[in-house]
Nucleic acid binder design. Structure first.
Lengths: 346, 346
DNA sequence: ATCGTTACCGGAAACGATACCATTAGGAGG
DNA sequence: CCTCCTAATGGTATCGTTTCCGGTAACGAT
């Protein structure tokens, strides 16, 4: 029950190995008759080409790496699942690596992974990149797409393909809405050191919205944490205990929002009557929370879909131009927000 | 900026390629002096051995496949993340494939994946296996561990290593508890055709508990769906609309439970005052729902940890015995259940 | 001096697939 | 009949490792 190799198949079919190779790779220069015969032998003996040999010869692997900056966030899990589906449809395999680089520079860890695993391409989810990173990475000479990543560079952003959203605008949208319906004491739940750049942009949107509505920014309404349920819970607790006048919370991720909402509800507050809350990401989960959470929905399917598409554009034709795509988010207003009551006119 | 190969390194270090190879693979037969010299050259020139060539020669890959039966369930995502961490720690790479076989037999799809991707080992999450599958799979001759899978065979279960829970007992535990606190009209939210075996066992636990408490099983309290939020929502709706006397729901997964709870709350019912609810899996999520969901907690970390451990036991020494591990679940009683009021004694 | 042993080391044949380069056969065109 | 072209095919070097099979040097024992 040994495995057959291409030479065995060639012998069995009475042809040369080159011909078998051509059949396997769909080269046109094979007579239909010969092709059919070889195909039937391949089928009969259950021959499967050896990928290692193939990759050795071709000098590039057919694994594409999906490297994820964070971990334990359903937002990433969902994207990853969708990406996997598409990668497999293209006859590549996905090598998944969560929680890349807790310490080092993003570009470092990517380079390491690519070399070590001989990846044919990489999708990087959720990191931060500056000019140096980009140049460093460029030396890899490998198809790379940056998805949901923050790219901080004034110069050439066209080194790599990228798929992202407008974080400032998206956050602005949510906070602007809160202001419009009368909220003035609006808190911000922000990721702290963990993923600074990302949170920073959303914070800028928050500040801009307040500014535009003539509300002065109060540092004590802004609190840092991490992208976890627990952190959301704790942040809300700290915030509300010392600032009971807060009427709305904008959380920069849904899991934070859920954590915060949980604190509010379990401390006897009502949502949205006492406090309105808006999350970020648009996890399926958020609509099954009770009350249904308002959120800024990221186009998760599109992020996954476009990332893979851009990657294969580069993979199939390395001469292709890189592309930068910015996708639209959508503010979903659900049951967790309410127009503020004007006490004076009661 | 070409990549160096082992011959380049050998030349640079003035040694033979075999010696370099020995250094790379930690063979003892190299003088410390020589080893250090080679090591420094390797470091200086940033040499990384080519995995394809290595695997070609060794005839076995250093990728281990993690194949997941279902998809879009945080239960699996969490296990996968933990597994990945451990696999990487062992210097292997994880190739992840969700949603294996929507149609075909589990063993078929595993075999296909293994051959095509030259996997060195496989962890299969959440499938169903019968005797035929097992025999079929055995021919692969590859380390394989079945995690959270249902193995239906009276004969030899020792073909493969496995990590599982006692589904019957776990479900029994939850339903028994509901009975103990006075519930009689207890509904079951079960996965339908999707993953029959798994749901079947939990159903058996449900039935056994009712039996032990002298409650006759009523088919109209048992409803089939899928492991999704939405399905949970719909099942609860159907169930409650036509059987308003139900006082408790046992859902065979947390996401079903959340969906069901959402229906109840949004239709004006109160949890647990009107209806008690218990889920299954123990997702972090469940405790941040409001009210905090009671659930049967699966030992997620242990499942991941043990799976990888058993796999590497087999990988490192193929002569090792396979092991079958059954892990304990834990009933977490939180805010979603309440002792039933006896109307007669009010 | 000769031998045996040990500790290191190198050469070269695989591993399985690809692709360049030849080669053949047959037909078209002169 | 010869040349040229094209379609189809085969031979073989090559990709970068590992490992078997020796080989050499050093050294103590005889």
């Amino acid at each position: 029950m040994k495995d057959y190799n291409i030479r065995d198949i060639a012998k069995l079919a009475n042809v040369g190995v080159s011909t078998v190779s051509r059949v396997i790779n769909d080269h046109p220069d094979v007579k239909k008759e010969t092709r059919d015969k070889i195909l039937s032998i391949i089928d009969e003996y259950n021959y499967i080409p050896n990928n290692s040999a193939r990759n050795l010869k071709l000098l590039n692997g057919n694994h594409i790496g999906v490297l994820v900056r964070g971990s334990f966030n359903p937002f990433f899990s969902q994207i990853v699942e969708l990406i996997e589906k598409k990668i497999n449809a293209n006859n590549y395999s996905m090598i998944l690596h969560y929680n890349i680089n807790d310490l080092s520079d993003d570009s470092e860890s990517i380079i390491e992974q690519v070399k070590e695993k001989r990846l044919g391409g990489v999708i990087y989810l959720g990191g931060n990149f500056n000019n140096d990173s980009m140049v460093h990475l460029k030396s890899l000479n490998i198809p790379l797409v940056l998805a949901s990543s923050i790219i901080e560079t004034d110069s050439d952003t066209s080194f790599f393909s990228s798929v992202r959203i407008d974080n400032v605008q998206s956050a602005y949208h949510a906070v602007d809405y809160l202001c419009q319906i009368g909220h003035k004491n609006i808190a911000l739940l922000s990721p702290g050191m963990y993923d600074v750049k990302n949170g920073l942009l959303r914070r800028r949107g928050y500040e801009k919205a307040l500014n535009d509505h003539g509300i002065t920014i109060d540092e004590k309404y802004i609190i840092d944490g991490t992208y976890t349920f627990n952190s959301g819970f704790e942040m809300a607790k700290t915030l509300i205990e010392s600032n009971p006048e807060i009427t709305a919370i904008f959380a920069t991720s849904d899991i934070m929002a859920v954590g915060a909402a949980k604190y509010l509800l379990s401390s006897g507050k009502e949502i949205p009557e006492d406090i309105s809350i808006i999350g970020f990401d648009g996890l399926e989960y958020s609509q099954f929370f009770h009350p249904a959470l308002s959120t800024v929905k990221q186009p998760i399917e599109a992020i996954a879909f476009e990332s893979v598409k851009l990657l294969f554009d580069l993979l199939e034709n390395p001469e292709n131009k890189t592309q930068q795509i910015t996708l639209k988010t959508e503010l979903l207003v659900r049951d967790s927000v309410i127009k503020i009551k004007e006490h004076s006119y009661d």
